[in-house]
């Protein structure tokens, strides 16, 4: 069997803080096929960003990857030396974040920053890198790219800055794009522009995308498969249609009915999930969702449910799925 593009196995990442050990990512496993878009959803603090940063090996103190394997085309990222990591980041795997300002240097022109990345990873000379940069800026539909090459990040709007990040990310032909809440800071009409662009480009470049978001609407339209996280763990994994049509885990079910949507008559009560997610330093025994779960049974509070197959390509970590 051919290797998956990315295979994360039993990943565990923790932060060693004064308040205790934060178990940010616990025993997380998932995979991505070539040119597939995988949605990673869950509420804030559930471990989405830490998972993404772990894949890129960008976890700094007080954090540490304490277990698991991260196989990129069969090679373990956790075993790579600095040089291999350098080739990996920005070359084979590119990442875009919610706030592009943090990844753009305010004192260099936008064109300069994209072409530097291209020079390093594609080993092109100045002129070729410049041409490639302008081509990429045009492909992400930045109007007047030749002129805007010499502009600084602050001269771009939020949506345009995110396009710059996408241009930079895709300029080196990565096989995987990790996009962490790429449109969360954008207004809805600008979000639609950026998502539309990401979809078109990932098809064109055959790039796989790990799309992280808290917005179930965004993944509904973008992802082929979805992984749902809760309190540092994957609690459900399913093809997009199955996840929305027949969610198996009570948390996924609750999340879906908490979103106000157009098919629900106005004014009906939303099904809120009582309480809040648990503290990752002091997780409850058993299932982490048990304290909020409408279907909880005594067993749930003592034993931890493993992720198990519940339907075609659908897995859930619950003793009482559906």
């Amino acid at each position: 069997m051919a290797d998956k593009l990315l295979e994360v196995q039993n990943l565990r990442t923790q932060f060693f803080t004064r308040g205790g050990v934060v178990k940010a990512v616990e025993d997380v496993s998932f995979y991505l096929d070539e040119s597939e878009t995988l949605g990673v959803v869950g509420e804030s603090g559930c471990g989405k960003s830490v998972t993404a940063l772990s894949v890129m090996r960008l976890i700094d103190r007080p954090g540490k990857i304490v277990g698991g394997r991260i196989l990129f085309r069969g090679e373990d990222v956790l075993e790579m030396d600095e040089e291999e990591l350098y080739e990996l980041r920005g070359g084979k795997i590119a990442m875009i974040f919610q706030d592009p300002t943090t990844s753009l240097n305010p004192v260099f022109t936008v064109g300069n920053q994209i072409s530097e990345a291209i020079k390093v990873h594609l080993k092109l000379d100045d002129r070729a890198a410049r041409n490639r940069t302008i081509e990429m800026m045009e492909r992400v539909r930045i109007p007047d790219a030749r002129r805007r090459y010499t502009q600084y990040p602050h001269e771009f709007s939020g949506g345009m800055r995110q396009r710059v990040m996408i241009a930079m990310a895709l300029s080196c032909n990565p096989q995987l794009l990790v996009a962490d809440e790429p449109t969360t800071a954008l207004d809805v009409t600008i979000q639609a522009q950026v998502l539309d662009l990401m979809k078109a480009l990932s098809e064109e470049f055959k790039t796989a995308t790990m799309l992280i978001t808290h917005d179930l609407g965004v993944v509904a339209g973008m992802a082929q498969r979805i992984v749902v996280m809760y309190a540092g763990r994957v609690i459900e994994e399913a093809p997009t249609r199955a996840l929305f049509a027949t969610p198996a885990h009570p948390y996924t079910q609750a999340l879906l009915s908490a979103v106000p949507r157009s098919s629900v008559p106005r004014g009906t009560r939303l099904t809120a999930i009582p309480g809040q997610p648990p503290n990752l330093v002091n997780l409850p025994a058993g299932c982490s969702f048990a304290p909020r779960c409408p279907k909880v049974q005594p067993r749930c509070r003592v034993e931890r449910p493993e992720l198990e197959t519940v339907g075609p390509n659908q897995r859930a970590a619950c003793f009482y799925p559906y």
Binding site: L216, G217, A220, T240
Partner: peptide, 15 residues
């Protein structure tokens, strides 16, 4: 435009 751009948690509708 605003309504059409607002994503809904419904893959069939989105498609």
């Amino acid at each position: 435009a605003l309504l059409s751009a607002s994503p809904e948690p419904d893959p069939e509708l989105e498609r």
